[in-house]
Design a protein around this nucleic acid. Structure first.
Lengths: 220, 220
DNA sequence: ATTCTTAAGTGGTCAGACCACTATCCTTTA
DNA sequence: TAAAGGATAGTGGTCTGACCACTTAAGAAT
């Protein structure tokens, strides 16, 4: 079975075999996998080969290992995909602008998504935000944007957004000023009305307030 | 240096150390890395630990190993971790949709960016594409989109797009049909005219052709 | 019944030994 | 001289066995 065409890279076969085992045993997220020694015996390979395969899957975020306990199926919805590449491929974070621009791309897309979806744009959470914006309580900037990106429903986009937020120079953790609240209110209203175009314009107004400069530049 | 806070997973530290070595030596794609035995000696760890790290990076497609020759920096743009994640992570159709949606977010943003930038939208490369689209030569789908994302100038967005393209189920490597060429032509024209709104609409027309279904859904 | 000790099981790491393969140098040969 | 061939060193691929650090749970002592 696993002997079909043994490639020159045994550990790659093991990766495939592990997939088979997981599937056959119907393992669910959080379940414990057989120990390295058991796997080595069952697949008739050395333990080091098993480990090379497991470590690869671990770096991918597919499994999780705990010393003294065992190996477990990880929640691959939180794949470290982006993190790995952010530390390896994207070794040139010299362009903070790229980070900010990309973050805005996702924010803008989320706003449009919600505006165009009758269900999402009528969620009660937006009404709650409107009330809070009218009040005097301090509101952190990222609260609103995070809710927007979350509600848009694209988990990968959300993941990327969270990552970029960390690298961003935009002061997302600060509270909103009064005029800022007004712009945010307009943004929400346009979004709830399903007018994605105007909602995006209000979003850009808000950016102007937060950042100050940059208007008229190409907005990439 | 590499002894700063050794985590419980040594091989993860090694992964980081390898990144440092690659960076310091200014290694470029195709360059040869030090041998496993040399690395083990230099980083003061066992060879198996080095191998676990290297195998992880190999599965990610970041390096390439050839028995008898050595380990080389791979071209991450082409390698196939597609297969791995499509069999592990991407079993969940929800994840697949996230990938496709996110990829479209970046494509759409790039189109808007270029449309709104007088310099970028008048680049001679678009004229070349128009000519090619009029001709009978086969054109690969991703050629045009890749050029668009490249020209948009956001390197981070480009890297994310490259990554997502690998995971995507959309047949980007196929050639364009005749009616497809017409839509692409319209997309380019609107973009060159600076009409981002219409350009995006043509882009969505193109998506309809490529994928077939999905129209009227909320487009996130 | 509680606490403590112990043993078994697990992942983490290392060292050494082969094997298979590749490239290179160097001898042999035509 | 030039080509063919073979020995050799270096590389990744794999296995074995041995520790270590840690967790868990069974069992002993209180």
């Amino acid at each position: 079975m696993e002997n079909s065409r043994p490639s020159s890279k045994r550990f790659l076969d093991i990766v495939a075999d592990l997939r088979t085992i997981i599937k056959e045993e119907g393992a669910v997220i959080g379940d414990k996998l057989p120990s390295e020694r058991v796997l080595a015996d069952r697949l008739q390979v050395g333990r080091s080969t098993i480990r090379e395969a497991l470590r690869s899957l671990e770096l991918l975020g597919l499994i999780e290992t705990r010393r003294g306990e065992g190996t477990f199926l990880a929640d691959y919805k939180k794949h470290q995909l982006v993190e790995i590449l952010s530390t390896f491929i994207m070794q040139n974070p010299q362009s903070l602008k790229s980070v900010d621009d990309t973050r805005r791309i996702h924010e803008k897309a989320a706003i449009e998504c919600i505006s165009n979806d009758p269900e999402r744009r009528t969620l009660p959470v937006w009404g709650s935000f409107l009330v809070k914006l009218r009040g005097t309580e301090p509101i952190i900037r990222e609260e609103l944007l995070q809710e927007i990106v979350v509600v848009s429903g694209n988990r990968l986009s959300l993941k990327i957004w969270f990552l970029l937020k960390q690298y961003s120079r935009v002061p997302y953790h600060e509270t909103m000023a009064e005029d800022e609240k007004e712009v945010a209110t307009n943004l929400l209203k346009e979004m709830m009305n399903g007018n994605s175009h105007l909602a995006v314009m209000r979003y850009k107004d808000w950016l102007d307030i937060v950042i100050g400069e940059r208007r008229g530049e190409h907005e990439c």
